[in-house]
Design a binder for these strands. Structure first.
Length: 254
DNA sequence: CATCGAATAT
DNA sequence: CATATTCGAT
């Protein structure tokens, strides 16, 4: 059962007119070294030893990241925990640590400037367009500074079904170790996916990982399982003059 | 000993 | 710039 198909139900795919089972994992891009074709048994060792391709933090992945951090509270939001909560197969602690570092910087800069308005910060020139693209593209839990479960004990989060957004792209080998592409889509106004063909050509794909907010928090705030079947949905990349920062679906978080 | 995180490297 | 790796601190 190819997970590429488990992630998106057939009817859902139809409903959105998806090109069928997207090549898997093209979605988020958690690379994984080859599973050992030979037949040895040290799969784990190899998986940990071989160097994985660069992780690409797609908006979807970042979303999960943010959700995880939000649910953990600043205090518990450390790489290992975040990683576990995200439940993304192939995602390493390092991956998260690196992203977290950057995210913290973003939040810091965000605080400095006016209030917590991404727009304002961006306008003020304190936030780079690039930051805006990934970080502010999605909802930024405004109250990240107020520890949520900070005082509480370790959150007994339920095991999330590991999602497996592999990125089996044997991409370029080792081009001149210089600069790849850093097509910074000039400015906001043009959506994120941007240059499909103009040198950009990101391979955004979609996946529907299990929603993060399905854990029972300290408060008796549980909701029926069916309530959050869809954590994140397809994102219509509408352009045409106006920006659309409309998130028309709950994350299961709020 | 594990892992965090700022600094640094690619 | 985005992500990875290093390395001292906890």
């Amino acid at each position: 059962m190819p997970l590429s198909q488990t992630l998106i139900t057939p009817d859902l795919a139809l409903a959105f007119d998806l090109p069928s089972p997207v090549p898997a994992a093209a979605a988020a891009a958690i690379p994984r070294p080859d599973p050992d074709p030979g037949g040895a048994g040290d799969e784990g060792a190899a998986a940990r030893t071989l160097k994985r391709p660069r992780l690409v933090w797609t908006p979807q992945l970042h979303k999960r990241f943010v959700d995880a951090v939000a649910h953990l509270g600043i205090k518990n939001a450390v790489p290992k925990t975040i990683m576990q909560l995200m439940g993304v197969d192939g995602l390493t602690r390092e991956n998260v640590a690196s992203h977290l570092q950057k995210y913290r910087l973003y939040l810091k800069r965000m605080q400095q400037s006016s209030s917590s308005s991404a727009s304002a910060a961006l306008a003020g020139g304190h936030i780079s367009a690039a930051d805006h693209q990934l970080f502010a593209s999605g909802p930024v839990p405004h109250h990240f500074l107020s520890p949520r479960g900070a005082a509480g004990p370790d959150p007994p989060f339920v095991p999330l079904v590991p999602v497996n957004p592999l990125h089996h792209h044997h991409h370029h080998h080792q081009i001149g170790q210089q600069y790849y592409y850093q097509r910074q889509m000039g400015h906001f106004g043009s959506a994120a996916s941007g240059g499909v063909g103009a040198g950009g050509g990101f391979d955004y794909r979609f996946l529907s990982p299990p929603p993060i907010g399905m854990q029972h928090m300290g408060m008796g705030m549980g909701f029926p399982p069916a309530a959050s079947s869809f954590g994140e949905q397809l994102e219509s990349e509408e352009r045409g003059g106006g920006r659309r920062e409309l998130t028309l679906f709950p994350t299961g978080d709020d």
